[in-house]
Deep mutational scan, measured.
Amino acid sequence: MASQGTKRSYEQMETDGERQNATEIRASVGKMIDGIGRFYIQMCTELKLSDYEGRLIQNSLTIERMVLSAFDERRNKYLEEHPSAGKDPKKTGGPIYKRVDRKWMRELVLYDKEEIRRIWRQANNGDDATAGLTHMMIWHSNLNDTTYQRTRALVRTGMDPRMCSLMQGSTLPRRSGAAGAAVKGVGTMVMELIRMIKRGINDRNFWRGENGRKTRSAYERMCNILKGKFQTAAQRAMMDQVRESRNPGNAEIEDLIFLARSALILRGSVAHKSCLPACVYGPAVASGYDFEKEGYSLVGIDPFKLLQNSQVYSLIRPNENPAHKSQLVWMACNSAAFEDLRVLSFIRGTKVSPRGKLSTRGVQIASNENMDAMESSTLELRSRYWAIRTRSGGNTNQQRASAGQISVQPAFSVQRNLPFDKPTIMAAFTGNTEGRTSDMRAEIIRMMEGAKPEEMSFQGRGVFELSDERAANPIVPSFDMSNEGSYFFGDNAEEYDN
């Protein structure tokens, strides 16, 4: 993207840094990872977990959730003011799984939030270390993106479920800051804005008074975040219109849905970061690795190297396929839920299948599930090659597409044709070009129609051997075009429920 120079890199967003050079960025990201790792080690000690239990991804998720809940100030305040039966607002906890007599047992633990905050700050040299908290939120978000298709949420806001490739980060909490905003897809931002506008339509006082002023500035800020994701002048001009509207209503909703559809071809720039579970960072720190000293990046080879040398386990339900569970977590670790499966298959070195073909449910185990038949197995999170994460949407291309997802959002900077089903997408653009945004709409449609099938995206960008740390010898991959490109292809993934 041309304006790259004016933006802070995501590592800076990730670490609240002012302008830093590459070495400083690597050190501050490393410091953040160190903090998460030290916190995780301490929690495993508190909970008396064995090494194996500490490497269980379900335990990692519970521990991450506990610290996120302990620092969720708004919710904590709300819980104190609106006490609900049987919930102690000062405590947080969740299921911890232990191996007892050759069987997995679930144990519900409860801790004072104050105590968890103390352990977290102690692991982070006394700081609140917001960057580390956001990092864990993005890992949870990436896992949700890989596990669930947001059909219901899309339909509720009037969008087409086939636009799911635009929904990265749709389950990120509001408090995820600049680093969170960077990884949100165009569809996620559109959905947040539509929800806001709908509230304004239904509630006369939404934009009024002292609160209304705050609401208005939040609305304009979200519009600017979305505008910054678009790469064409016409899309940005249309966002200006939406932002400046005196009284946002149905016309703005129409414009936003139009823009979301246009992003299936004229893709937005959305950041991709490899955020790993805390149970990967903990053992690495415990083994003596100093992330701050060595430096770390979320968008280069580092996460690949770390996963190459990590042992992570997962509980497996009786009829689940461990290899499929591994694929789910591998995609989440690489922030690749909406990437082209052919690119992923090449990088991973084994075939990556669409969601609907995987015999696996989510990673988390519900409290009512029976533990008797639970097994555990090693997650295979290694890769054959590594590639640089991208934040450009890439230019655009036609490809055989599917009944489910009709476009992709690249996660890796790797040369390819970008699949999208042009006739299906263009069919949504018939007729409606009147109104105050008509010239911009016409211009956007013209650009979409001009998108050429034979153009290559990320020209000359390749993948790298894991021994090639400096990215000196790019390998331009070859793809098996007979395979499906979309992950949520004609899909039956479970729906995400809060």
Rank of each mutant, 00 (worst) to 15 (best):
A234M: 12
T188R: 13
W386D: 13
R221V: 12
D340R: 08
P419R: 05
A401T: 14
N76V: 03
M13G: 00
I194Q: 04
E114G: 07
N124A: 05
L341F: 12
S274C: 09
N368K: 01
A284S: 12
T360I: 12
L166N: 14
G177R: 12
T232I: 14
Q308Y: 09
S353E: 09
E443R: 09
Q12F: 02
F206I: 14
P173C: 15
C44R: 08
S9T: 02
S69H: 09
R389T: 03
H324L: 05
M1R: 00
V109P: 03
R174W: 14
S170K: 11
F230Q: 15
H135M: 10
V363A: 14
L259R: 15
L226N: 11
F206Y: 13
Q398M: 05
G212Y: 03
N125M: 05
S467C: 03
N125A: 02
T6G: 11
M189E: 04
I301K: 05
P410L: 14
R118A: 00
T430P: 05
R150G: 13
T151Y: 07
M163G: 05
R152A: 11
D112P: 05
V270H: 07
W104A: 02
Q311H: 12
L466G: 00
S392R: 14
V67Q: 10
E434V: 15
E465F: 10
D51C: 04
I253R: 12
V312Y: 07
R118H: 05
I96Y: 08
D255S: 11
A472N: 12
I63F: 02
A337L: 03
D145W: 10
V343P: 07
S359I: 02
A260T: 14
L315A: 03
R195Y: 09
I96Q: 10
E339Y: 12
D372V: 01
M196Y: 07
D34L: 05
R199A: 14
R118V: 10
K198P: 06
T151E: 10
G282T: 08
G86A: 00
Q58E: 05
F479V: 00
T157K: 05
S402R: 15
S438P: 09
L56I: 06
N224I: 14
Y487F: 05
Y40A: 06
R261V: 12
K77R: 06
S28N: 02
G485K: 02
R384H: 05
I201E: 14
R162Y: 03
S84I: 07
Y487H: 15
P453H: 02
L79C: 02
T171H: 07
N417G: 02
P83N: 00
R221A: 12
V183P: 03
R156I: 06
E53I: 05
N319P: 14
Q311W: 09
F346C: 03
G462N: 10
S84Y: 09
D72E: 06
D88R: 00
A22F: 03
G37E: 15
R446V: 01
V463S: 14
T23Q: 15
S69N: 05
P248E: 10
G349S: 02
Q399D: 13
K7A: 11
P474A: 01
D72Y: 04
R470F: 11
E454R: 04
E434P: 15
D468P: 08
V312E: 08
S407M: 10
R391S: 13
A451P: 02
E294D: 14
L79R: 06
R99F: 10
R216I: 13
A366H: 10
K357Q: 08
V476T: 01
K113V: 10
R221D: 12
S392A: 00
N144V: 15
Q415N: 13
R55W: 10
G17C: 00
R75P: 08
G212S: 05
L298K: 13
T437V: 01
V190T: 00
L226V: 09
I57D: 06
F429M: 03
M43Y: 09
M448K: 13
C223G: 02
E220G: 13
Y148E: 11
I406K: 15
N309Q: 03
T424I: 15
P161I: 00
A153S: 06
E24W: 04
P95S: 01
E454L: 15
V100E: 14
E192S: 12
G349R: 12
T151V: 09
I365T: 04
V285G: 08
T45W: 04
L110G: 10
P83S: 03
I225Y: 01
P303K: 09
K305M: 06
D145P: 08
V183W: 09
R38K: 10
R236L: 09
M426E: 01
I138L: 01
R162T: 05
V312M: 12
V312K: 10
Q364E: 05
N76A: 01
I347Q: 09
S402I: 08
E454I: 13
P95C: 09
L193F: 05
N319F: 15
D421W: 00
K98W: 09
Y52F: 13
A153T: 03
L56N: 01
R470G: 12
D128I: 00
T62C: 02
F304Y: 12
G431H: 14
R152V: 06
H272I: 11
G94E: 09
T378Q: 06
V190P: 02
P89Y: 02
A472C: 00
V100K: 12
Q415M: 02
R19C: 14
H140M: 11
K48D: 08
E14C: 08
A70Y: 09
A123C: 03
T134C: 02
I197H: 12
R19E: 10
F71M: 04
T151K: 02
M238G: 15
Y219E: 10
R361F: 08
S274H: 10
